[in-house]
Design a protein around this nucleic acid. Structure first.
Lengths: 154, 154
DNA sequence: GAGGGTGGTTTTAGTTTGAAACCAACGTCT
DNA sequence: AGACGTTGGTTTCAAACTAAAACCACCCTC
């Protein structure tokens, strides 16, 4: 992992995360972790990927502090993989990915799973991006700006 | 592209999008497109990637209907690449990625670009996921559920 | 103490990536 | 007209990465 970070040492706020989870499997592992999976074998069975790849991905996610190992689940000799706070911070991204997928990758009549609010038992709303005053804003309503002093590249 | 879609023909709502944009560069291209870049050379200069790779990525994004080519910008003999509606639908995902990056990939004092609401000139709020009744919900407050009838795998 | 489940690592082949070179079309200067 | 630069790619080829399968080690049970 740790792909070419060559031409720009200080990656922008979009590129840095991609260096950590920018491959096909990592996000699926994180999603499964959100779904409660914890064990190597559970991930492997759920995702159907080769064990060496899963091993490498888990190592990478560990190295990035997205998951961590907890030594013993309930006495068993094995470790489990659980999301860190950083990993749990990926929830909105997963929701965004899921909603985009639902919008554009399914036939109108094609059934797909729904993200449901536990308390009400109803599907959640769409992700909302709001301005400080509460207006919902889209891409056209925003731009990126460097803060006062910044050698940042974006 | 079109990686292993072998062991499951009908990918879930998270995996399908990853098949379209689940590589390091594609999302960065889309972000640059949101920033107004349109020309091959602009993307290449901005991202610093090899031209063959850019060519392949653009082809892939075209094939997935995320960008499209428009024949002439203003008479020039070249084409430009612009986001389709599907591509513009990636905006929340990019915001989620950016916010996660800001949260966990920058030192507290490290400067980074901000996403600013044009109208007010202030940074936008965090992405919000709300239940139907307006409560903001997080990962712990939700679960995924299959709709009534569904052979979907997730 | 043989067999089976879990959690990996190693081996090896196939695929992808990417830098550099090449190429073609067009504009432009002289 | 013809040399030359710019744009937008494609081709070549070596290096890196991916992944299937085999292997291994540990523990448990019978």
């Amino acid at each position: 992992m740790a792909k070419r970070v060559s031409h720009k040492e200080s990656l922008c706020g979009v590129a840095r995360p991609l260096d950590a989870i920018g491959d096909w499997w990592s996000l699926l592992i994180v999603r499964d972790a959100f779904d409660g999976l914890r064990r190597f074998g559970e991930f492997q069975k759920s995702l159907g990927l080769a064990k060496n790849i899963l091993s490498a991905r888990l190592r990478n996610l560990l190295a990035h502090g997205i998951i961590e190992t907890v030594p013993a689940p309930d006495g068993g000799p094995y470790q489990e993989y659980v999301l860190t706070e950083k990993g749990r911070g990926l929830f909105p991204l997963l929701v965004a990915l899921r909603q985009w997928g639902e919008d554009f990758f399914f036939e109108p009549d094609e059934a797909h799973v729904l993200l449901v609010d536990k308390k009400a038992g109803l599907p959640v709303r769409r992700l909302e991006l709001r301005a400080q005053d509460g207006r919902i804003v889209g891409a056209k309503d925003t731009f990126v700006r460097l803060p006062p002093t910044s050698p940042e590249t974006e």
